[in-house]
Design a protein around this nucleic acid. Structure first.
Lengths: 137, 137
DNA sequence: GAGACCAGGTCTTATTTAGAGACTGATATC
DNA sequence: GATATCAGTCTCTAAATAAGACCTGGTCTC
């Protein structure tokens, strides 16, 4: 056996299968959820559907432009849906699609890992940054 | 109950705990593994330790600059270690640290999700892109 | 009638990120 | 003696990403 590499993470598998970076699912997915606001937006929508202005209020510092862009990205990938209610002041609701819901468990796993190990990462960073970069002599 | 939101992903929790984006573990972690080469590098190191040139050969299209930068990032965060062997042509080996190993399962979960759902995401994209952006009349 | 709210669009900068390619210096091969 | 390997560094440029400010149009309030 190969020593505990989770299935799907085996590099040689990818290579053997003829790795194509542009079509790589992982690259594609990480490009989306790895951007500045998507993970946050996703988790804001995880609890319940929300309206545009509501999201804008609760997500700290996001600009309307970025919020629109993030939501369009989620919509384009089929992770969220957009519902327009033609009320007097227009109201638009965003909600996670069934597909969008399925990403929550794996994403949650990573979030849990991050929360759990961030202290150690910070210590590692502090150590690394304190190291002398130019060896004295 | 809140309807199946994984623990740690609850937005209201974060808000209640006084969300600070700069210190946010999730943002920090996603910034690292969400970049262009880190996930790939991580999975190349998952199987076994590798030397710099070896990584450079097997990771398609990465430049030395990016490879160095990616490895430094992993080293800085304590996810990988660097071992220099002062042989005649110098040889440097990179290997995952114990901490680095612990990220493989959650990362693997996301990779599996990506692989499994990418076809559907692509269909969603095709649908979205085929939609008339300016409603005719 | 001046302004605010809704959900954005647009336009112009910054900042960040990535890439290409030349250079290092010691050894080793041809 | 020209060239290659090793593990990088360096500079410069290009591309992607994000921020900020202002604009829309209809209704609603003051």
């Amino acid at each position: 056996m190969s020593g505990g590499v989770p299935p799907g993470l085996s590099f040689s598998e990818w290579q053997a299968a003829g790795f194509d970076a542009t079509a790589c699912p992982v690259r594609n997915v990480l490009d989306r959820i790895g951007d500045k606001w998507t993970a946050l937006t996703l988790s804001a929508l995880a609890e319940r559907p929300r309206r545009f202005s509501e999201l804008h209020r609760i997500i700290p510092d996001i600009s309307k432009r970025m919020l629109t862009q993030t939501l369009r990205g989620l919509e384009r990938d089929g992770l969220a849906t957009r519902h327009v209610f033609p009320t007097k002041p227009p109201s638009v609701e965003y909600r996670l699609s069934p597909l969008g819901r399925t990403v929550l468990p794996p994403l949650g796993g990573l979030v849990a890992w991050a929360a759990e190990n961030f202290p150690e990462i910070r210590r590692a960073r502090a150590r690394f940054d304190a190291m002398p970069e130019t060896g004295g002599e």
